[in-house]
Write a protein that binds this DNA or RNA. Sequence first.
DNA 1: TTGTAAGCGTTATCAG
DNA 2: CTGATAACGCTTACAA
Lengths: 321, 321
Amino acid sequence: MVSIKDIAKHAGVSISTVSYALNGSPKVTEETTKKILAVAKELNYVPNAAARTLKKRETKIIGAFLTSFEGAFYGDLLQGMKEEMSKRGYDLVICSGTKSHRMLPEGFLDGAIVLDRMFTDEELLLYANRGHKLVVLDRELRHSNIVQVLLDNKAGATFAIEYLLRMGHKKLYVVTGPKGSFDSGQRLQAARQTVERNGPLWYAEIPGNFNKASGAAAAQRIMDEYDGPAAVFCLNDEMAIGMYNALKDTPYRIGEHIHVIGFDHIEISDYLQPRLASIDYSESRWGAVAAEQLIKLIEGVGAEHERIYVSLVEGESVKQR
Amino acid sequence: MVSIKDIAKHAGVSISTVSYALNGSPKVTEETTKKILAVAKELNYVPNAAARTLKKRETKIIGAFLTSFEGAFYGDLLQGMKEEMSKRGYDLVICSGTKSHRMLPEGFLDGAIVLDRMFTDEELLLYANRGHKLVVLDRELRHSNIVQVLLDNKAGATFAIEYLLRMGHKKLYVVTGPKGSFDSGQRLQAARQTVERNGPLWYAEIPGNFNKASGAAAAQRIMDEYDGPAAVFCLNDEMAIGMYNALKDTPYRIGEHIHVIGFDHIEISDYLQPRLASIDYSESRWGAVAAEQLIKLIEGVGAEHERIYVSLVEGESVKQR
DNA sequence: TTGTAAGCGTTATCAG
DNA sequence: CTGATAACGCTTACAA
């Protein structure tokens, strides 16, 4: 490995001169700088990150933590983050799994964006207390080193239920997400409120898990109880897809016997027959805003909590009753 | 920040004893070890990665480089890698963008898995020459510090064309991937060979780009030239989906006028109407094999080039002529 | 069994 | 403008 020491030797200067020259300090003659850069290039010099980090206590790398890489993998969200970070001189890496949490306290990362239920609130607060900077996308957590960038779940759930009501439905199901999911909790709460506010309605909740299997199970139960058109708000699209699958070889038709709306507006939903109604938001904007706030936090210029707005996307999976 | 020096002070021992104790060395009494661990816990000690790396010249982190995070394609691949790495004591981070290439030469990563056309062969060879360990998934590159884990593109393309022929098709199109793509090049080459080998056939190639837009454009051209049933091998599923979209509001039907097979068997393809025929392979196996070989390379136990096998998935997008 | 000390590659302070 | 030199936190001979 070639270090600044080697460069110093070859260029006939001291290592501090080399360091200054490499960092473009005006303290060094243009001439010597040029020479040093030439030698560096010739020797294929690459700075050692560990050494620099040890001194400067920063890596210019931030981590985004996901529960899993499987499924939709949040492509646009990550892309939005990456572009924003890149613009501001930071690199982004995507991490998953509890083992990799260590990277934060050990100083590999200058900060983290968390969308990962494998982090407990306690763990995050611990890191925040030690001075690490965090943005959370999946919980409410108040601390001076943490900022929240959250989806407007309540608005989305309200839009969804109101849409079903507007289409004349009187028998409503909600298929929920896993216990303890922040998004699910918020959506459910708003759905209940909207139902209550709109007077006497038939209403039931079916516990789900945000995956296809639980959507299919919910479909089964709805068929068992069938006594006329029912409307279902699946708290995410994945479960709605499970419902489509389960109904495929039955006499029940989506948009006719069972009306379905999801949440997230994932890509597949536009390809389903009939097209799935859903709640849409810009993943890339979500990512960009999260990145922006994290960098503000790191650089100590007033970061603020943010809300990501959502909108209704209609689809033939819900028809007028 | 609390360092081993602080622990030493609090425990009334020297820093080397602390270091030994923390690393579970048998050189230290069980008693002192216990005490030191207690103090460490009490002070919330976390080892500093930069310092350790500077000494040990390893991070136990490996990077997977992708061209982009967009598209839902790589979830299982990454999951396969992660699980394999985790089993062997390494962490995985996902990187994208040329700026983040620095992490490899600067010593942030113990190795890299590359599926990213933004790396040139020259750049990779440079790193390999400097001693960095690499696994490439998207090119052929021979070097003692590089191992290849490649899809069996040729088998897949052969299966696809043979399937179309078996179904009685005589007019064949291939929609290609971008210039310079290794996968596209291999698939195209095998497709051509199979066509040639099977005697006189109407055959044409349409340049594509592995995205939906180019699939749609290809569909347009095929309709313009239409003079009877045609069969199309899209060199990936994404373009096949573009083709579905483009044909949606035309009188041409997939599986009737235009028969289509893709490559990759991505999730959406099972939800298309009619179901898309494709070439399938196990993404998670691909990832796991890549991870396994990289670690072998790093640990110096004979790593070997590997091939990932593929299989045909039939679908109603191709019907007997 | 424990302590001393050198050194990993940088940065940054202080003299010259 | 340039050069010694002391850190940064940790590992690891070697000494005691």
